[in-house]
Simulated scan of single mutants.
Amino acid sequence: MPTASIPALRDCLDREMERLELWPARAPWIRHAVAAHPRDAFAPPRLWAWDGHHYVPVDRGRDEERWAREVYSSPYRAAVTQVTGGVASSSLSCASVVVDMLDSLLLEEGHKVLELGTATARA
């Protein structure tokens, strides 16, 4: 697999979302908001990857590219941020779900939103 930078992986996910028609036509502001607030800014320095048998740590400081590939892997795949007892117990929601939730709000200019999230299990 060729080496890719975080901006390149971010662009790849954006294009895949476009190809799959996941960007809502009625709310183009969502795509702009996602671009202005990239997923990697919300991901902790340790993610967890499934190796086929169990979750293994992927540390940004040791392998930034692999870490970034976990963050930007697919519109339909969450990035696992915490594992408890061998089971994924927290994640950065997949991009398609985030976009769908935002679109479901049916926000219009002048609306105000208070979002109270639990964030991503940062230590």
Rank of each mutant, 00 (worst) to 15 (best):
A4P: 02
A4W: 01
A4Q: 14
A4E: 10
I6W: 02
I6N: 02
P7N: 03
L9A: 05
L9Q: 05
R10G: 08
R10N: 09
D11K: 15
D11H: 11
C12Q: 14
R15Y: 12
M17Y: 09
M17H: 07
E18H: 14
R19D: 15
L20Q: 12
L20M: 10
L22P: 12
W23Q: 09
P24K: 03
P24R: 00
R26C: 13
P28K: 05
P28T: 09
W29V: 15
I30Q: 01
R31P: 07
R31W: 06
R31A: 11
R31K: 13
R31M: 11
R31Q: 13
H32Y: 11
A33F: 12
V34G: 08
V34D: 08
A36R: 13
A36H: 07
H37A: 14
P38H: 04
D40V: 06
A41K: 10
A41N: 11
F42C: 08
P44F: 08
P44Q: 10
R46I: 11
R46A: 08
R46M: 07
R46D: 04
L47C: 03
L47H: 03
L47S: 02
L47D: 01
W48S: 03
A49W: 04
W50M: 04
G52S: 05
G52Y: 03
H53F: 14
H53A: 15
H53W: 12
H54P: 09
H54V: 11
V56F: 01
P57Q: 05
V58E: 05
D59T: 05
R60N: 02
R60W: 07
G61M: 03
G61Q: 09
G61W: 04
E64N: 06
E64C: 03
E65L: 03
E65G: 06
R66Q: 12
W67F: 01
W67C: 05
A68C: 09
A68K: 02
R69D: 00
R69I: 00
E70G: 10
E70D: 10
S73K: 09
S74E: 03
S74M: 04
Y76E: 11
Y76W: 12
R77A: 12
A79V: 05
A79E: 07
V80E: 01
T81W: 04
Q82G: 02
V83A: 00
V83G: 03
V83F: 02
T84H: 11
V87I: 15
V87L: 13
V87P: 07
A88Q: 00
S89W: 04
S90D: 15
S91T: 02
C94M: 13
A95S: 12
S96T: 03
V99M: 09
V99Q: 04
V99W: 07
D100T: 11
L102W: 13
L102G: 14
D103E: 14
D103A: 15
L105H: 00
L106S: 15
L106N: 15
L107T: 06
L107N: 07
E108A: 15
E108T: 15
E108I: 12
E109D: 14
G110A: 03
G110Y: 09
G110E: 08
H111W: 12
V113D: 06
L114F: 14
E115V: 04
E115K: 00
G117C: 00
T118K: 14
T118F: 15
R122V: 07
A123E: 11
A123R: 12
